[in-house]
Design a protein around this nucleic acid. Structure first.
Lengths: 245, 245
DNA sequence: CAAAAATAATGATTTAGATCAATTTATATA
DNA sequence: TATATAAATTGATCTAAATCATTATTTTTG
């Protein structure tokens, strides 16, 4: 055997099937056995790396596929008739994106990469058919959508009656939790979205986002170096958030 | 045949099976054939009229059932650790409620009647099993959740960057559309929720809700008589909403 | 690598809607 | 049917965050 293959050439190989994917437990394939995973494997279209700003699916287009995020990050947003954009979510490795097109058969939002990103593309019709015979897969799809609803209800709560400080603190803590569950550092991470995008998502102006970051930096809660964030005082930040993450 | 049976005694009889239910097309049973409907019928527990303020399911409780609303109206809300309530949705006949408990197995919000209300209770495990053999039913469940996600994303957009006037106008127009699709009058309806509940849902104080109602009344957009609303100028109201319903 | 463009930080000013307060109207209850 | 309680309206005041404006920093690109 040749052990001299460069790492970057090995990586795609060991990750090319669901059963070897390290995102297994987060993604579709949770708790499926080997045979079931092979069936799932057969309907997956593994994509190559997509550049920053790449549009995976456009609002108004036909709903056909869902996407499993492998590396990088993604934003979803709706564009109003006046042309202004509302970000509806940020997504990270292991997330399954695009299921909300089922109802109307039309994509209700645009899916766009925030940085270099790799995804697996799943044809929805085939996924649905497969789910008839794989109860665990069926349950996983429902769980994903259920979680999405809960996330959005959590956002409603945040937007309806929380201050700028509470929104930002909650935003950072939720990111922290999500990174943690993916095996990334929960206390030190890089924001792949701009201040403007954070503000848009949280219903704040970009100036307010910037000001709150500065304030939290000065008060010693976090360390802000442009897009690099380090949570210094977790408990006080949680207190500041004043909400469940 | 006896044609002298009072109407209130007939109604429960002709509505006791899904295939005779006038909410058919909105609810679970959309496009199922007679045999399929009979199967669905077997797992449904039809309830009697519930009084105003009745709690169907409490936040934190075990997730076991979903509810199909037959008559009346319902609100769902989350309660934070500090005890304040955030309304996440209002529901009307034909709506299917409670699917967001699937992810964690725990009810993420409380489901409460806003007035005298009747519902059908469906055991989720049985519903899921049945959906394996009934593709249309499976699709209907996914559609319901997908629609819920879209609704909430629409709310995010509303809360993130719309004025009080836009929020209220959009709220009224969405109600109008929902009543219309249920065969009720789209221009004249009774609000089953209080100003306080509307404000909570829309991220506004009850005073602002009241003021906007008064303003819209004075400007001739709507007619407000306490809980009775009549939309007088639909187009101008849509213009005021400045958003898709 | 320098110039241009985009993004972020910070200060000054404005404002929409919250909060506080009082009154009116509607609903529940004895 | 009167009384108590809750809900809604309306006015006065306050404030958090938006907007406008400038400067600094970062990123892109020729």
């Amino acid at each position: 055997m040749n052990y001299n293959i460069p790492l970057q050439n090995i990586t795609p190989l060991i990750h090319q099937h669901c059963c070897n994917c390290n995102l297994n437990s987060l993604c579709m394939a949770v708790s499926l056995d080997t045979l079931e995973m092979t069936q799932l494997d057969n309907i997956i279209n593994r994509g190559k790396a997509l550049p920053k700003g790449y549009v995976l699916s456009e609002q108004g287009g036909k709903f056909e596929s869902v996407y499993a995020l492998k590396t990088g990050s993604i934003k979803t947003f709706t564009t109003s008739s006046e042309g202004d954009e509302q970000i509806t979510g940020f997504y990270f490795p292991g997330d399954l994106i695009g299921l909300n097109g089922i109802d109307t058969g039309v994509c209700p939002n645009t899916i766009k990469t925030l940085e270099t990103t790799t995804v697996c593309k799943l044809a929805f019709e085939q996924l649905d058919e497969l789910s008839a015979t794989l109860p665990k897969l069926r349950r996983q799809i429902l769980k994903t959508m259920s979680k999405e609803i809960c996330n959005e209800q959590h956002m409603l709560q945040l937007l309806a009656n929380k201050s700028a400080d509470e929104r930002i603190a909650t935003f950072l803590l939720r990111l922290s939790n999500r990174f943690k569950s993916r095996g990334f550092s929960p206390l030190k991470f890089r924001l792949s979205m701009s201040r403007n995008e954070i503000g848009n998502y949280l219903g704040l102006s970009l100036e307010t986002v910037s000001r709150v970051f500065s304030r939290m930096h000065k008060s010693g809660h976090i360390l802000v170096d442009n897009k690099e964030i380090e949570i210094i005082a977790l408990k006080p930040l949680q207190l500041l958030a004043n909400t469940e993450q």
